[in-house]
């Protein structure tokens, strides 16, 4: 399974990077490919290209704010959660993403 994800929080620093780490860990534990883009205080990092978005099976937004350039993901099944859900209940988040496919 290929996952693309975006994490973003209000201050753009703490929760953004914690959610990214959690997503990457849990996805690799399950043997999935994942790329997590952060939209934070340092701007957009690890940016997901249109091509990568197109090839993904599912998109996960772990965000407390709006996703920039959301168009890239149009037509994809999207799971949107808050960053705290990703940090505290990552297993549940991945379970829900699996169900969207």
């Amino acid at each position: 399974m290929k996952i693309v994800a975006v994490s973003a929080c209000i201050a753009g620093l703490a929760h953004t990077y914690m959610a990214k780490t959690k997503l990457e860990k849990e996805a690799s534990k399950r043997g999935y490919d994942i790329k997590v883009e952060t939209q934070g205080a340092m701007g957009i990092e690890n940016k997901i290209s249109e091509e990568e978005a197109k090839n993904a099976d599912v998109a996960i937004f772990a965000v407390d704010t709006n996703v920039s350039e959301r168009d890239r993901f149009s037509g994809k099944p999207v799971l949107e959660v808050g960053t705290k859900e990703a940090i505290k209940n990552i297993e549940d988040v991945l379970n829900r993403a699996e169900k969207l496919i």
Partner: peptide, 22 residues
């Protein structure tokens, strides 16, 4: 966090720490 702080090295350190807490 500095209000005007954008992309400097120190911010990166704070982001690293956040990741390490996971």
């Amino acid at each position: 966090i500095e209000d005007r702080d954008k992309g400097n090295k120190h911010l990166q350190v704070l982001a690293n720490l956040s990741s390490h807490l996971m």
